[in-house]
C-alpha cells in the first residue's frame, strides 16, 4: 500500500513485507507513547502551573501499582517486539534448501559478482524473479556491507571469512545496491544495481554474454595449475585427503573434534592448512596465503563443492 510513496521504500522481496509489518507495529507503539507522554506533560504543565510565587506541589512520593503497571506494560511490549523481530530474523538467516548461488567479492570501491555458469559482473547483479538467491561474500581489503533497501536485507562483507545473505525477489525491476559499511574515500561511490528479471529474460541474459567456462571448471584448472592434485588424489593413496564427495560431510580432526566441511573450512584449509588437520594426515601442506586471490579461492571452493556429486 505504501509502495510508490516518496516516504517509504519499495518492497521487492519475500521478506520485505514481514520486516515492514514489524516496523509498523513499532511505529504504532512509538507514536502511542510519544503522544501520550507529550500530552501528559503539556496538560500537567498548563493545569498545574504555579499560581502563587511560593506555592509548592502536593507531596506524592510514589505508587506501587503505577510503578508496576509502567514496568510490566513496556516489558510485555518489548518482549513481543523481540519475539516477532527474532522470528523474522531467523527466516532471514536461514536460506531455503534450493538456492541460486552467486559469489560476491567486495573491494575498495566496487562489487564483483561471479555466477556459477561463469558470468562475471561488476556493480550490477542480474537475478531472476521468484527464486531464492544466496550470496556468499568476502572482501579483498576492508569491511564492506551489501545492502539492498528494497529487499530489506543487509550483511557485512568481511575480509578473511565468508558471510552469506539470501533473498527472493518478488518483482522485476532495478533496485539500488549500497555499500553500508564505511570503507574509505569513495565509500559513497561503491554503489550498484540489482537487476531482477523475469525467468525467461534471465535465461536469455545467462546465455548471452561472454562465456569463459563455469566457475567450477575454472577451479578445476586452477587445481591442477597449483599442483593440488599431486597430493589430493581421487584414490586414498594421496598425502592429502581425497576431496570427492567431501563437501557437506563431517570429518574428524587430529584433536578428535569434528568439523563440517563448508566454504569457511575449505577456505581456512587452503590459507592456513595447519590450523585444522584431518585425522590421519600430516601438517605438510604449504599455505596459499598471498598466492591465490579471493576470486581464485572462490573458484577452488566451488570446484570442491562440485566434486560433491561425483
Amino acid at each position: 500500500m505504501w509502495s510508490g510513496s516518496p516516504l517509504f521504500p519499495e518492497a521487492a522481496s519475500t521478506i520485505a513485507s514481514r520486516v515492514d509489518a514489524v516496523f509498523f507495529f513499532l511505529i504504532g507503539v512509538a507514536v502511542f507513547f510519544s503522544v501520550l507522554i507529550a500530552a501528559l506533560i503539556l496538560r500537567f504543565a498548563i493545569k498545574y502551573r504555579r499560581r502563587a510565587p511560593d506555592a509548592i506541589g502536593e507531596v506524592i512520593t510514589g505508587g506501587v501499582l503505577l510503578e508496576t503497571i509502567w514496568t510490566a506494560v513496556p516489558l510485555a511490549i518489548v518482549l513481543i517486539s523481540f519475539g516477532w523481530g527474532a522470528s523474522v530474523y531467523f527466516a532471514m538467516s536461514r536460506p531455503p534448501e534450493e538456492t541460486l548461488d552467486i559469489y560476491v567479492v567486495g573491494k575498495q570501491w566496487m562489487w564483483k559478482f561471479q555466477h556459477l555458469d561463469g558470468q562475471r559482473e561488476i556493480n550490477e547483479l542480474h537475478v531472476p524473479v521468484g527464486r531464492a538467491v544466496k550470496l556468499t561474500m568476502t572482501s579483498e581489503d576492508v569491511i564492506h556491507d551489501f545492502f539492498v533497501p528494497a529487499f530489506r536485507t543487509k550483511a557485512d562483507v568481511i575480509p578473511g571469512r565468508y558471510t552469506t545473505i539470501w533473498f527472493e525477489p518478488t518483482k522485476a525491476g532495478r533496485y539500488q545496491l549500497f555499500c553500508a559499511e564505511y570503507c574509505g574515500t569513495r565509500h559513497s561511490g561503491m554503489i550498484g544495481q540489482v537487476v531482477v528479471m523475469e525467468p525467461t529474460d534471465y535465461q536469455a541474459w545467462l546465455s548471452g554474454g561472454p562465456q569463459e567456462g563455469s566457475l567450477a571448471s575454472r577451479g578445476e584448472k586452477l587445481f591442477s595449475d597449483l599442483a593440488c592434485n599431486t597430493c589430493h588424489r581421487p584414490d586414498t593413496q594421496g598425502r592429502g585427503p581425497a576431496l570427492d564427495g567431501l563437501f557437506g560431510k563431517t570429518v574428524t580432526l587430529q584433536g578428535g573434534e569434528t568439523v563440517t566441511v563448508d566454504e569457511a573450512y575449505l577456505r581456512q584449509s587452503i590459507l592456513t592448512p595447519a590450523a585444522r588437520i584431518t585425522a590421519g594426515f600430516q601438517p605438510i601442506m604449504p599455505t596459499f596465503q598471498g598466492l591465490v586471490t579471493e576470486e581464485q579461492l572462490l573458484e577452488l571452493v566451488e570446484y570442491v563443492k562440485a566434486l560433491r556429486s561425483r
Binding site: R18, V19, V22, F23, L26, V29, A30, F33, S34, I37, A38, I41, I77, V78, S81, F82, W84, G85, A86, V88, Y89, M92, D145, F147, P149, R152, T153, K154, A180, E181
Partner: peptide, 24 residues
C-alpha cells in the same frame, strides 16, 4: 519528549529484523 522518541527508536534497533534494514 525527545528522549522518549530516541528511546523508542532504540527499541526498533534492538528488534532484530528491523535492525538489519536500518543499521548503518
Amino acid at each position: 519528549g525527545l528522549f522518549t522518541i530516541g528511546g523508542l527508536t532504540g527499541v526498533f534497533l534492538a528488534t532484530l529484523a528491523v535492525n538489519v534494514h536500518v543499521t548503518d
